[in-house]
């Protein structure tokens, strides 16, 4: 190999890459919070809601889970303006992430809810707790404890998937890498650096979520 890797060429662009990193982190955090809220609502609708609502949620979940994220993103960013709904690339990226994680977390949380023994719900109702109180204190409490590891890995998968939003020029870490590569033509160096950045981010997210889980689900 006659080519010499030149990482020093990336130094002048540190602020571009840092901006991209912050964008990716914010994108992940916001879509995680909103996406899990959507997923909780979806799972509750599927298990406790009326039949028609459950079926709509089921169609939403299957549609999202069986199509690639990039197609969902293109549909939202390029397809929806044809119906008169024009979104900026940042909003479209956030929306696509929320819709995607919402579908996956609906399915994960539903599995957790169904694992809660029926007797617990009946016991709660017989203690004159309202339906909401039962859902909040008995069902979701136990469900989240059970599915927390699965949800954590889904969050990391979604964070890695967010690299795709660069394709509608939302300014995330991958967009920054493409930008730098187009300026100094050190493609391999910048992609290697950014790939390691993602790896570090994934490992950091995993240990942070594990620590958070220990705090939230402290042994009673």
């Amino acid at each position: 190999m006659s080519y010499k890797l030149q990482f020093a060429e990336l130094l002048p662009y540190w602020n571009v890459l840092l901006y991209g990193l912050v964008f990716t982190i914010v994108l992940t955090i916001v879509s995680t919070v909103v996406g899990i809220a959507v997923g909780t609502a979806g799972a509750a609708a599927r298990t406790f809601g009326p039949g028609w609502l459950g079926r709509i949620v089921a169609v939403y979940v299957e549609l999202i889970r069986n199509t690639p994220f990039i197609v969902q993103l293109f549909f939202i960013f390029f397809g929806l303006p044809a119906l008169g709904l024009k979104l900026s690339e940042t909003i479209a990226a956030f929306l696509a992430m929320v819709i995607n994680l919402g579908a996956y977390s609906t399915e994960i949380i539903r599995a957790g809810i169904e694992a809660v023994p029926k007797g617990h719900i009946e016991a709660g109702l017989s203690l004159a707790m309202s339906k909401w109180e039962v859902l909040r204190h008995i069902v979701l409490n136990q469900a989240f404890r059970k599915i927390y590891p699965a949800l954590s890995s889904q969050i990391i998968i979604v964070m890695l998937g967010s690299a795709v939003v660069s394709q509608i020029s939302a300014e995330d870490l991958t967009y920054a890498a493409n930008y730098v590569a187009s300026r100094n033509f050190r493609n391999f160096e910048v992609y290697l650096l950014v790939a390691l950045g993602y790896l570090l981010l994934a490992m950091l997210t995993r240990s942070l979520l594990r620590a958070l889980g220990r705090v939230i689900f402290k042994a009673r």
Binding site: M1, Y3, I156, L160, G161, S162, A163, V164, S166, T174, A177, N187, F188, Y191, L192, V194, A195, L196, Y198, L199, A202, M203
Partner: peptide, 21 residues
């Protein structure tokens, strides 16, 4: 760890530009 911890898109870029080196 590497292939599960980095985006597939980055891996595609790395192979595309890496082999060319």
């Amino acid at each position: 760890e590497f292939f599960q911890g980095t985006p597939l898109l980055m891996q595609l870029f790395l192979f595309f530009f890496g082999i060319a080196l």
